[in-house]
Simulated assay, not measured.
Amino acid sequence: MERSTEFLSDIDMVVGPRGHRRWPDAVKAQIVAETLVEGATVGAVARRYDMRANHLSEWRRMAREGKLVLPAVTEEPKFAALVVRDDVETTPDPEPRSPLDLIFGAVTVRLDAGTSAARIAEIARALNASS
């Protein structure tokens, strides 16, 4: 069975006098990028371009080492499905936290556990200023 490589002429690949092909870096990068698509294999992509898989693996190594710049990914991001279940047990609310005591000399200020840090700082400054 003879393979047709006519489509390769559209990608600026140069065939030398002895049949050796020279691939521009942009074409190499595009072919390597095709191997990174989910579900693609090096072997399948190599067959599509009528080349050996080990040759394509070498280009992949070059890309990992930064010697071949891959094109930007143009695929839209994919999201996982959200599953909402009603049959899951929920944890009970935690027990109420104990109050917070600020002690400054003979003065004790008891604050609710939900008091904001900013409010606690204001009270501490006021206690410090009064001394």
Rank of each mutant, 00 (worst) to 15 (best):
T5P: 06
T5A: 11
L8K: 03
L8F: 01
L8N: 00
M13I: 11
V15T: 15
R18M: 00
G19P: 04
H20V: 12
P24S: 01
D25Q: 13
A29P: 08
A33N: 07
L36I: 06
E38L: 01
A40I: 07
V42M: 04
A46N: 07
A46E: 05
A46G: 03
R48M: 09
D50K: 07
D50V: 12
N54R: 10
L56C: 03
L56T: 02
E58I: 00
R60N: 06
R61L: 10
M62Y: 07
E65M: 00
K67R: 15
L68Y: 06
L70R: 06
V73Y: 14
E76N: 13
E76C: 04
A81E: 11
A81G: 00
L82E: 14
R85K: 13
D86Y: 06
E89K: 04
T91P: 03
P94V: 08
P96K: 13
P96V: 15
D101H: 10
D101S: 14
F104H: 13
A106H: 09
V109L: 06
R110S: 14
A113S: 11
G114L: 08
T115Q: 03
T115C: 08
R119K: 11
A121R: 15
A121P: 03
E122G: 07
A124S: 11
A126T: 11
N128S: 15
S130N: 13
